[in-house]
Each structure stands twice: as structure tokens, then as C-alpha cells.
Design a binder for these strands. Structure first.
Lengths: 351, 351
DNA sequence: ATGAAAGCGCTAACAT
DNA sequence: ATGTTAGCGCTTTCAT
């Protein structure tokens, strides 16, 4: 079945003609070892291609350089970037990461959460599927945890997220100032804090503009269908605001299928700035989220807890930037392919 | 530092008033245990929130339900989808995955490869950074391994990839038939097998069309600069073919910045079909790769090896589909926003 | 400076 | 059917 085992510390010891304790000391730079021993041990390690067994090491030393990461969906570019950044930071600090995806399924999240404990990670960084995160934690859960991006309905963990309401409000204000009189806001589900906060931000910021909300779920054919019917059967809104990447994609596709011109027939803005948004038509106005900064903050918060820092859970809000592009231009002279892009930093948020 | 330890099997045993062996037997469904014992053990497990320590379990049983996965870059949507699919398949088979990214860096790949061994995974699935994969394997590497997507300069491992040459050739033939007389082919580096094979496929298939190749690297400002100079300083090609997602994005951006109309001024095709390619202009003609199928095949191949299947390394090539869209239309009546999409399955490849 | 030996949490032999 | 015990690979006292 499995081929010859990997070399153990004992094989290294016998090859180097020393005790296993000495090998361990050399490997971990502990205690005082004579240069001669160090050389012999390193030679044996080299020749055998020895690598320590992390599991055995942790078992005995009772200290783990492992952190768990759970995200709702690895194929979401936002989360992929988050994990990628995290992975790099972790490595720099000597940590390994066990990464799991809940695949947008609360039940699967609960399952993974239970499973991840089997690895005895020192800490956990989680982007919850929805607000009911706590209810999916296994009984007796006691791993130092930092939540990111989505906010649960309780506050027992450190938390880092973006300033959704302020950024979404800035977009709404922009649309308002451009003179659009009504706006269809499209999100997945209000049970996701990001969507809820963005919607609330829009409501608080809109002045002249009347608002309408549509929840279409995540990759849900029924939701998409309702969306399309809404656009076809009732009077078209002057503007649309998609509250995340998935809905932005869906919205743009429907708009294209209906043959509507952006911004000539309808204006369009998105929360989440993806690369393609600079390329379509005259560009899509979008909120750019500081994903890397969020990952850095999350890792920092976790590091502190692992270093023993006590105290109440903290919440950090990160500021977003708004990219104003052609899709929300007031006068609709669509000069195909040309990008009139004007970058504006909105100042808002605490942090 | 770390809070109260997670409960051990001994605590479960004492709480249930049984021996640790019985607890282990209940947990693993081994041997014969009376219903009474099962109930008592499960109750104690529940109350304590006990989860087995995978590391200790593997240490003793000498069998590991862990597989390693290494990809060049997690933020590449192709690889993210690959990992996500893999993760699901692994879970179904009871496996955990330790996922690492090389961040497009050969040195980092070597580092991760060495590090991943510390986990003693039963098997490994790797998408190599480039052809010199073998040179980055640690001495004494003996983990059953399946390579995917990119082909190394040796053949000691099972391998699954797409039929690059055939698919790229089909695109070249299409461009040729559309009447374009010259084509600028843009790739990252020929040292990546995908790029090389696609370029060879194009060369083999083009008839009337003259070809020119440009290697621009991965996120390399110098390469981008050279690319832009090429377009500005010499006569524009009638068509361009980007050999992967990154170069497609770069190409499309430069085209937009130069104010060129697609396909009016220049035709454009891409290897890798991303969601936005249906949305820009009249759509981008693209090769759609079977990423999920590739992940499935890779997992299947690995499973077989883990089950003890011997024999020579096998290579599997998966067929791609071509999506013909407006960006390669012969007559350039660019009706902004309207998508004239015509799906065509190209039959080619073995497997 | 080096080594012998105990023991981390668990499973697999082997008793009973 | 259940319990006792050895030992997986490692680190850490504690002797020497």
C-alpha cells in the first residue's frame, strides 16, 4: 500500500551516530550543541531528505504552528485573494494553514468547522456564511478566532470588515447627484451582513432617488428569473446598483441580453471592483474593497491573540475606495471602447 | 497562552466509565461494542464536544487521510476552481486537504513542496509552476503524486491536462477561415507547457495567416511595455490570440486604451473563457477549459494510486470547447452590447 | 555537551 | 465484549 516510510528522527540519529535528543536540539536550535554534532546531524538530514513530522512534534511539544481558515467560497475572487494573502503572511510567521471552503452552504460550514478542530489549530480565521455563525460552532469551541468580511449576530470574536454602509452610501449619493431619480438595488440576501449594511447605507444616503431592493440569492435560477421579470414587466429604473460581484455579473448579463445600453438606457454601479469592470463599455463604477488589507488585519489580530493578548473582542472597519467610471455618467454619449475613468477616493468610515 | 486543552480520548473514557479502547472502537466503528457502550460513549463525546486528534490518530494507525495540493496561484480563477472542486471530492472520500500556493514563484514552490512533506500526506496533487518541477522536489520525495494542467519535462507522474494544441489549433483555423491574414499571439512564457503547446498548435493549424509570438511574462511591467510598443510602433495585426487569462486581460486593456474597436479594428480570441468574456462588446471568442473535469480526473488518478494501483504513469488529455463570439467576426458591424453567440463543440484530442 | 527515558493522544495487539 | 498495554515520532526533563 504505502511505500517505504519517510525517514524518522531515529534514522537520522543513528546515521549521524548521535542521540535523537541531539538531533532534535540541532533541528530546533535549542540548547547547546557542539559544531561537530551540528555538522554531522545536518549531513544526515540532508542525505536522508529528512523533514520533521509536524504532527508528532505538535503532539509532544503541545504547541501548534497551524491556523485554520474557512471561507464561504474559494472560487469567489475576493475570498481567493483573501486566502492567498493570508497564506503568505502565515508562512512568514512560520505558520501553516489548513484552508477549507463551505461552498456557500451553512450545513457544510458547520461540518467543516467541526472537522477543522481535529487538526488542533492554534487559531482560526473565518469568513462566515451568514449571521448565524455562532450556531454552527461545535459545542465546547474554544479556538482563538478572528472573523472577517461578514458580521455575525453576536460579538464574541475579533472582527475585521469593510465600511459597507459608508461606501455604498457614497455610491448612492453619486447616483443621486448624477440626477438619476430611481434605483434598483440588487443583492443576494439580506441575511448576509454585507448586503444588509450596504442596503442600509444606500437608504441613508439617497435623497431625491427612490429605491427598490431585489434579493436574488447566490447562483439561484429562481432569483435570476424574478430579476429578469422585474426588468421586463415593470418600468425600467434609471439606475441599478449591484451589491456584490455575483449580482453585478448577473445584472450586467441581463442588461446585455435585453439590449440595454449602459449608461444610455440605464446606469450601473457595482460593489466589488473586478478587472473586467474597466473593460466593458466605458467602464463600470465600482467600490474597491481592500481585501489584502483585510487579510493583513485579520492575521495581525489573530497573532496578537495567539501571543496571549487578552481583553474584549475588537472590531476594525476598513475604508473602501470608489472608482467612478462611465457606467454612471449622466449624459449618455457612449463612445464604444473608450474609457473615461476618473478615480476618486471617498473619505469616510472610522478605523 | 493556550486555553484549556481540547478533551482527549481519556477524558471521554473516564466520563463514560469505559476504557479508551472502547471509545476508539465506538468512534471508528471497529470491533463489536454493545449498544449500551455505544450510547454511553456517544453521550460523553457529545457533552465534551470531543473531536479526535487527527495527528495522533495518523501517528499511531500509520494511515493518513490527508492529501496535499499545490498550485501556482490561488487568485487565478482557473486554479481556484480546480482547488474548490478537489476539496469537495476529497471530503466525499473522507480526505482532508492541505492547500498551498507557490505564488508564481519557483523558489516558493520548492519551499512549499519541502514543507508539505512535514504533514506526511498520503498523496499530492500539483500544478507545477513550470517544466522544471522535478528539480524542485526535495531529495527522497516518494509521495504518490498526480500532476495537472502543466506538463513537466519528465514523465514519472500521472498527469492530466487539456488538449492545448488541438484547441489552440481550432482557434487558429477559425481565425484563418474568417480571413484574417496575420495574427499576433500573446503568451506569458514558452517555458510553461500550456503556452508552448498552444503556440505549437497555432503554428500547425494556420494556413494563410502569418504568425508572430510575443512573450510578456506574468504581471511583468517590462513585458506589458514591450507589448504596447509592438502595437504602436509597427503595423497592427488583423487578429490577436491571447494564450491565457492573464494575457487576455492585458491584451484587452491595451486594445481599449488604444481606442481600437473589436472586431472592427482588430479581432481577438482568448484561451480561457472567463465570465466577463460574454459581456464585453459583442463577446470574446474563447476556449473553454474543463477545469472541474480536470480536478475530477486528478482525484481519480490519485485515489487509484492510493488504493495501491501500480503500473506506469498515465497521461490523460481532456478536450476543450470553443466559444465563437463576436470578437472574431469577419465583418465588423459592431452593434454595441448585442451578443451574437454561437456555440460550437470542436471534436479533437484523444482521451 | 550529550544521552536515556518518559509521555503527548491515539489505535492495534493482545489479554481476559 | 471489554480492558491493558505497547508504541507511532517527536520534545523535554533529568541524569550524566
Amino acid at each position: 500500500m504505502s511505500r517505504s516510510h519517510s525517514p524518522s528522527i531515529r534514522m537520522v540519529a543513528s546515521r549521524a551516530g548521535v542521540s535523537v535528543a541531539t538531533v532534535s536540539n540541532v533541528l530546533n536550535g535549542k540548547a547547546s550543541v557542539s559544531p561537530d554534532m551540528v555538522a554531522r546531524v545536518n549531513k544526515a538530514v540532508e542525505e536522508l531528505g529528512y523533514v520533521v513530522d509536524i504532527a508528532a512534534s505538535r503532539l509532544r511539544s503541545r504547541k501548534s504552528l497551524l491556523a485554520g481558515v474557512i471561507v464561504p467560497d474559494l472560487t469567489n475572487p475576493m475570498f481567493a485573494a483573501f486566502v492567498s494573502t493570508l497564506e503568505h503572511l502565515a508562512r512568514v510567521d512560520g505558520f501553516d494553514l489548513v484552508v477549507v471552503s463551505a461552498r456557500n452552504d451553512a450545513a457544510e460550514e458547520a461540518d467543516r468547522l467541526a472537522n477543522i478542530r481535529a487538526w488542533r489549530p492554534a487559531g482560526l480565521i473565518a469568513i462566515p456564511c451568514d449571521g448565524a455563525f455562532k450556531s454552527r460552532l461545535p459545542a465546547g469551541f474554544s479556538i482563538p478566532t478572528v472573523l472577517a468580511d461578514r458580521i455575525p449576530d453576536h460579538d464574541e470574536f475579533d472582527l475585521v470588515a469593510v465600511d459597507n454602509a459608508a461606501a455604498a452610501g457614497a455610491v448612492a449619493r453619486h447616483l443621486d447627484e448624477q440626477g438619476f431619480r430611481n434605483c434598483l438595488v440588487v443583492g443576494t440576501r439580506l441575511s448576509i451582513s454585507n448586503v444588509r449594511e450596504r442596503w442600509e447605507g444606500v437608504q441613508a444616503a439617497a435623497r431625491q432617488m427612490t429605491l427598490e431592493l431585489l434579493e436574488i440569492g447566490i447562483d439561484d435560477p429562481v432569483g435570476l428569473d424574478a430579476f429578469e421579470r422585474r426588468l421586463r414587466e415593470r418600468s425600467k429604473p434609471q439606475a441599478m446598483f449591484a451589491l456584490d460581484h455575483g449580482t453585478a455579473l448577473a445584472t450586467y448579463r441581463i442588461v446585455a441580453e435585453m439590449g440595454l445600453k449602459v449608461p444610455g438606457d440605464i446606469a450601473f454601479a457595482s460593489f466589488d471592483d473586478m478587472e473586467w469592470m474597466q473593460l466593458v463599455g466605458s467602464g463600470v463604477t465600482a467600490v474597491r474593497q481592500p481585501v489584502e488589507a483585510m487579510a493583513e488585519k485579520a492575521w495581525l489580530l489573530l497573532s496578537r491573540r495567539l501571543a496571549g493578548e487578552a481583553g474584549e473582542p475588537v472590531t476594525r472597519r476598513l475604508r473602501c475606495a470608489i472608482e467612478i467610471r462611465g457606467s454612471t455618467a449622466r449624459s449618455a454619449v457612449s463612445r464604444g471602447g473608450e474609457t473615461e475613468s476618473l478615480k476618486r477616493e471617498e473619505k469616510h468610515g472610522n478605523q
